[in-house]
Design a protein around this nucleic acid. Sequence first.
DNA 1: GCGACAG
DNA 2: ATCTTGTCGC
Length: 241
Amino acid sequence: MSPSPESPCPPVADVPADWPTTEAEATAVQEMLRGRVTQSSAAVEPGAPGVVVGVDVAYDDARDLVAAAAVAIDLHSLVVVEATTAVGRISFPYVPGLLAFREIPTVLTALGRLSRTPDLVVCDGYGLAHPRRFGLASHLGVLTGLPAIGVAKNPFAFRYAPPGERRGDSSPLWDGDEEVGRAVRTQPGVKPVFVSVGHRMTLDAACAHTLLLSPRFRLPETTRAADGACRRALAALAAGS
DNA sequence: GCGACAG
DNA sequence: ATCTTGTCGC
C-alpha cells in the first residue's frame, strides 16, 4: 500500500545501508577520514557577510526516531533566513566519541533541503576536540566540504582552567599537552562554551565566530534556533502519528 | 580493571 | 539527549 495522499506525516528516512554497525567499524571510518580535515585560514572571516547554518537533533528513543534541523542565519543581522528539518531512524547508539554516527545521516538530509550553500556550519558538540581528532563538526565538515565549527556545552573528557569572567575571555581546552579547543566565555559570569575547529577554520576564527553569534545568551543563536526547530519537528511528528 | 564521557 | 512547573529577575 502506498501512503494515503492526505496523510500529512513526513517520511521517515531509514539508516543508509552502508552505515557503520559496530564501534570498530565507526572508529575505522574516523581513522580513514580524519586526514581530510583542513585547519588553515578561516574560509569565512569573522565579521564578514554571509550565512551561517546551525544544526541540531532531538531524539525519540521510544520510537527510534531522530529529528534534525538546519537553520540558516544571516551573519550580520543574526536574523533567521531559512529553516529545514528531516526525520530519520536513529542510526547508531550513543557512544562517547562516536556521536556523529548517531546524527549525521539525518543532519545531512536537513542540510540538503536548504536552498543555499552555508558559508559556515555550527554544530552542537566537538570537532578536533575528540579522542581521534574527528568529532561531529569535523565529520560533517569533511562530508560536506563546508567550513564547520563545534560549540559544546560540556568539556567532555578534556581539561581546562576556567577563563576570566568577562565576555570574550577564553582558556585552552587540553587533551594532555595539546590544545584541542577553547573554553569561551560568551556572557559575563556565565559558564563558558567549548569551541573547537571542525573543518576549514582556525581556532581563533572559530572562537571569534562563536562570540559574534552569542551577543545575548550563552549559546550561539544558531544553536538556540536549531535546538528549537528540531524539537518542534519531533513534537509535530508525535502529534501527527 | 574501573570510572569518566560531546548529544 | 531526556524526565519537567513555577518562579526569580532583568
